[in-house]
């Protein structure tokens, strides 16, 4: 197995004018291709911060990181943006769909924008992804016409559009009721099985975490244990 993600001794300190907030303090771990991993920890333990750093949305204060065997520690913003588009998928706590676009257009967006063209093939793939997350009958609905769980499933489909190697999900079930939350989790699990897409999912819900291959426990800016 090859490591898809290697995090080495990552430190993050937020600095404002007067205060320094140390959030991560020497975090190291590896993800192998095809794993479904939970990132656990109480609120404020730095889960979102760590996912942002792994997702190339935020720079670490110190430490090294490589994604797909490429050192990404010092990439420039446009390279990071391109890397995110080609290799990473994001699902956030809030769905963050584009309200003026249909479910299908939202899903196809990450492929259409870089090519400046929404091709027939992209529309078809977007439709298939929506079908996979159980939204075959909502493909051409505007995102504002969907329920919370449906929106989150559209967001998952969107994260998968460009066939990412790694999907980062930050409390994807946080805004959903338990039942819907489990359904969304189940969908990610199926995709993980069928496509061997790697998932790193932050949550503070032990039941969600229990459905993952293993769990990384974050506490006080450090990895407490991995089990």
């Amino acid at each position: 197995m090859t490591a898809i993600l290697e995090v080495e001794d990552i430190t993050k300190i937020f600095r404002s004018r007067e205060v320094e907030t140390p959030v991560l303090n020497g975090v190291s771990f590896k993800l192998q291709a095809g794993e479904l991993v939970a990132l656990l920890g109480p609120s404020g333990s730095g889960k979102s911060t760590l996912l942002s750093i792994v997702g190339l949305l935020l720079s670490a204060t110190a430490g090294r990181m490589s994604l797909l065997d490429q050192d990404v520690t010092h990439l420039k913003e446009d390279q990071r943006s391109q890397f995110r588009n080609r290799h990473l998928g994001f699902v956030f706590q809030a769905h963050h769909l584009l309200p003026d676009f249909t479910a299908r257009e939202n899903v196809a967006f990450p492929a259409a924008a870089p090519n400046n063209n929404l091709s027939r093939a992209m529309r078809e793939r977007a439709g298939e992804l929506l079908e996979r997350v159980g939204l075959a009958d909502r493909v051409d609905y505007l995102s504002t016409q969907l329920s919370g769980g449906q929106k989150q499933r559209v967001a998952i489909a969107r994260a998968l559009m460009n066939k990412p190697n790694l999907v980062l999900a930050d409390e994807p079930t946080g805004n959903l009721d338990r039942e819907t939350g489990f359904q969304v989790m189940e969908q990610m699990k199926i995709i993980n099985r069928e496509e061997r897409t790697t998932f790193l999912i932050s949550t503070h819900d032990p039941e969600i975490a229990a459905r993952c291959d293993y769990r990384i426990q974050l506490l006080d800016g450090k990895i407490d244990r991995i089990d």
Binding site: Q82, R84, P99, F109, P114
Partner: peptide, 16 residues
């Protein structure tokens, strides 16, 4: 703003 931010998060270029 937040829509634009989300586009940027999944790697839509600043140029676009």
């Amino acid at each position: 703003r937040s829509e634009i931010g989300i586009m940027r998060s999944f790697g839509i270029s600043r140029r676009f």
